[in-house]
Design a protein around this nucleic acid. Structure first.
Lengths: 202, 202
DNA sequence: ACCTGAACACCGTTCAAGT
DNA sequence: ACCTGAACACCGTTCAAGT
């Protein structure tokens, strides 16, 4: 057969990424199989190895995209809320993304590269975007705090939010569990900020 | 062949659990294969299905054991440290376990049951032990705070520690990254506690 | 009754062969 | 040059057959 140039390599790459993301979102990371992706885009397995070196390569692409989407979502969410620029709106924007993109967000932590394989620079940069967003907002609260300390606080805060979000997804999602998680995120944000302002940075 | 009763069913079960835990610790969850376990204990694959219904069943057993070990580790760690009973010692005890049991701890979050399958009661109870430990210590700080609020704060705090620990394991472990994580755990504990005492519970 | 191991339906990856 | 699809070495699970 070998249908020639019906799609460019770049088009095929995008088709694979979108098909894979759909599978992860609908059936979870464990359902992401190369044969399923191939069937969904109307190509055979071999064609996927034309544009990706393997499943890990493909997955790292998707994970980088997910961090980017998360950063955009938080930025967009904050503009729709009254207390814009607050850590509370950051926390709720984060949680909102997690609920709406459960499969993709989970995959950020369910998957990891075999030991020894270096993490791609693009991936690390996409992840850093989210941390920088939190850092920027922390700066608004304490503009004279050393930037190294703000950096550390932002890391801790975002990672804490990740822990609270993870626990939410450990049970089956429901309106009640989501509402409870919102309160937990707000409690985390308010306690941490109150304690942080209260003298860590002198 | 069919070697008869060389080990009791219960002995085989323990041998499987220990072999599986060794594999997870040494090579990670992704290296946990039923054929590898069977080879390690000197039986064939079929024998594993005599004592476990399948891999998910075996994994949930190990995960429950890991939560129990974590609770014991935190309790033991606190007795070796001067500021016993503090949230800081809880945080450092938690982190100490994560570093020493990277593979097993990771599996708590890397693995999850297929949707629809209910989580075993034994597992939930083992997990709850760790949360109760934190709850007990929070009570020492604010004995008149409503128990429902203490419960929520303990959930948030432990989940936050999980988030910070997870981020540590996303990079290759080193003395520097572990030292940085310790500071992050302490910053989380101190900020959260300061903020929590500062008026959430009135 | 206890345990084996071949068989089954999968999986990611490779690569000679077709157009 | 682009793409196929059979082949390979795996995987979890089952179950008829042996002792």
């Amino acid at each position: 057969m070998a249908r020639r140039s019906e799609h460019s390599q770049e088009e095929i790459k995008q088709m694979i990424l979108e098909a894979a993301e759909d599978i992860v979102q609908e059936y979870g990371f464990s359902a992401l199989k190369v044969r399923k992706i191939a069937a969904d885009i109307g190509y055979t397995v071999g064609s996927i190895y034309m544009v990706f070196t393997g499943m890990d390569d493909l997955i790292m692409y998707i994970k980088a995209r997910t961090w980017q989407k998360l950063a955009k979502h938080i930025e967009g969410y904050e503009s729709t809320v009254e207390r814009s620029g607050s850590i509370e709106s950051f926390a709720l924007g984060y949680l909102d993304f997690v609920v709406a993109n459960e499969g993709l967000w989970r995959m950020l932590f369910e998957h990891h590269l075999p030991v020894g394989k270096g993490i791609p620079e693009d991936y690390l940069q996409a992840q850093a975007t989210v941390f920088l967003l939190a850092e920027r907002q922390l700066k608004l609260f304490d503009s004279q705090c050393p930037s190294e300390q703000v950096h550390q606080a932002a890391r801790v805060l975002v990672n804490s939010m990740q822990g609270v979000s993870m626990q939410l997804l450990m049970q089956t999602l429901s309106d009640e569990s989501i509402a409870a998680a919102k309160l937990e995120m707000l409690l985390l944000a308010s306690c941490f900020m109150k304690g942080w302002q209260g003298g860590i940075c002198e």
